[in-house]
Design a protein around this nucleic acid. Structure first.
Lengths: 222, 222
DNA sequence: GCAAAAGTGTTCCAGATACACCCATGT
DNA sequence: ACATGGGTGTATCTGGAACACTTTTGC
């Protein structure tokens, strides 16, 4: 009991919804809680904000600890602070969401086995705390943002075909998209360039590979 | 020094950007700080979140203390938490913004005199802490949201003319709008109904008065 | 009767949608 | 040769933007 204040202070954490595309599915990372409360239940990765780090730095630290990944798309989502959301003490959590390209994930989380795992949106376990609310909001934001920004490019590996990109949109939006219209629109944004390479696999015409011209740029459209 | 923790805890505040329309201008409420740090400088209203109240409840409490207003549009904006944003201790602030109708403001803040005042966006004083950043984001959000939601209706009094509403849009967007297109669009949203009354003032045709059908409803458009 | 703001429709343009066939490859 | 996904163009529709005159009042 070393830190004392005149007024009660809440604890502040960051929790992160980490999305990626794996096995033709939108997935997110959950960790199994080793300690009470909610021992044994799945929860969003997260942890206390250090007293001398910014909120985003805290979120990136947690993100890297769990996935080994740096330099990914990370955006503040919302701050959740109902007084009773943690039974131990007052905890306010600043929620972030991150999008990770399929070729970026380090084995740390991928190999997991011990209490870290990727879940599809249709196979979610019960979540600890109010993490289901956080996840719901993150998912809604992702879906909404797909429509008016180029955020989906953050999911793509270094090189990919337009069909693969379209598949990502269809997976997340859960609706089919017209191929010709999709290509017209996505290419008109001038965010992609051909690598010059082809991807050949299977008994059909090879597909041109594309790369994102500037990964750090999220373009707003319409 | 009554409250002790094993780890250092930040303080958590809410700050509120309170917008209204007055004197044909978009204005926001600032308070003059009576105590250090930034003594004598203007700052956004706000204060510490009580340990047993939600973040939004804290924001509404501060809002009511400053303006005497309840039941206004209030939305969480962003959470600001750079380690050094307050020189005294680590303070994380959950910023909100509120829109107040011109006929809603109580005299408390309106009459003021002592350290509470409305400022137009073009006559802003230097702000304490990182409040200029908060204000900038709130203003950008407001402008953006004008475009794809009916948020502007929150500024309107119980009854108003379409010209008055258009003026509010023009004031905030700082650009003229075509009268016919504006009326077509705003009426097509079915959020307004005629009161049946006219507003007659000045030597010209009287204008129909309208009211918002459901004030609590913010419609998203497009 | 004149000055002032209220009120009202139509044309035009751009961007989104719908839609079907040929191409290059592996087996 | 055939099965498989890759790649391409045009017609139509829809919603936004541009635009000018008549109406009702107070003085």
């Amino acid at each position: 009991m070393n830190y004392s204040y005149d007024y009660p202070h809440p604890a502040v954490t960051t929790d992160i919804v980490i999305f990626t595309i794996r096995q033709d599915e939108l997935k997110l990372l959950l960790i199994k809680r080793a300690l009470p409360p909610f021992e044994g239940q799945w929860a969003l990765p997260g942890g206390f904000v250090h007293i001398d780090e910014s909120l985003e730095a805290g979120a990136r630290r947690e993100l890297e600890e769990e996935t080994g990944v740096r330099d990914v798309y990370l955006e503040q989502l919302y701050t959740f602070g109902k007084p009773d959301r943690d039974p131990r003490e007052r905890v306010i959590t600043v929620a972030y969401y991150a999008l990770i390209a399929s070729d970026q994930i380090e084995l740390r989380a991928a190999s997991d086995a011990e209490g870290v795992s990727w879940f599809g949106m249709d196979e979610l376990p019960a979540l600890a705390f109010d993490h289901a609310d956080i996840l719901k909001m993150a998912h809604e934001r992702l879906v909404a943002k797909l429509d008016y920004s180029t955020i989906a490019l953050q999911f793509m590996p270094a090189a990919f075909t337009l069909s693969e990109l379209q598949q990502v949109y269809e997976l997340i939006l859960r609706e089919p998209i017209d191929k010709r219209n999709f290509r017209k629109k996505i290419l008109s944004l001038k965010q992609l360039e051909e690598t010059g390479e082809d991807k050949r696999e299977g008994p059909h015409r090879p597909a041109k590979l594309y790369r994102v011209i500037d990964r750090s740029r999220i373009e707003f459209i319409k």
